[in-house]
Write a protein that binds this DNA or RNA. Structure first.
Lengths: 111, 111
DNA sequence: TACTTATATAACCAAATGCGTATATATGTA
DNA sequence: TACATATATACGCATTTGGTTATATAAGTA
């Protein structure tokens, strides 16, 4: 029960909710998330740390990048995120985020 | 989007989440909620006020009692609560709450 | 090696949160 | 009217939260 309320606390911040909805479709690194959402790096990193601490996401380093991905073990959490995506037309900012994420690589400087 | 994150903030407190899951099946007054959850009246009232302020629940006075009920206008919110109830076996306290709510009238003193 | 990019994290601060206690109001009853 | 029940809300307090700025580490490149 306390794990579930902690999950909802994570969803209660707009930045974190946007991150989770982005990670629902693909893994992304910090600088891609910053670019897509137009948010500062420390802010994004801090929220990612909270998501990682509760075991909602995984991280994996590839060279200088650290890629984050959504863990798929908790079906309830996945279902809730899917419910939100089913109402995506009510949340234009999420729609824009996902559109931008379709060529996320452009937010990596050297590429 | 901010309305959605506010909804999740409401769900992020155990007392409020229990209240919402209880109201999913029937309307209840404050003293019934206190009795079922074994929580103090000011605590329950305060959380009900937050739920009311965001328009998640309705209140209706009947004599000295004020009955609270879940509003049914937002389908996403209802779906999320249903998702949780589908996993009710993972949350025994919720199961107990709902069992106790089946004869909630016993928590009204004069009855 | 010097520099750039990517990332994490610490320090600080203002605002929000949740709780307990106390109190005020409304309704019903003796 | 006096009292009990039901409920809302204000006050004070300790904790948490989220943001910004600054800094430290790691990896790649010239």
């Amino acid at each position: 029960m306390s794990e579930l309320t902690k999950f909802f606390k994570l969803l209660s911040d707009e930045t974190r909710l946007r991150i989770l909805l982005l990670l629902k479709s693909q893994r992304l690194c910090v600088c891609e998330l910053c670019g897509i959402m137009n948010e500062s790096q420390p802010k994004v990193s801090k929220h990612l740390a909270k998501l990682r601490d509760l075991g909602i996401i995984d991280d994996e380093r590839h060279e200088q990048f650290i890629f984050y991905s959504l863990k798929t073990n908790n079906k309830l959490y996945l279902r809730i995120l899917d419910d939100i995506l089913d109402s995506i037309n009510d949340y234009p900012i999420v729609k824009e985020d996902i559109e931008k994420s379709e060529n996320a690589e452009r937010f990596i400087k050297i590429s």
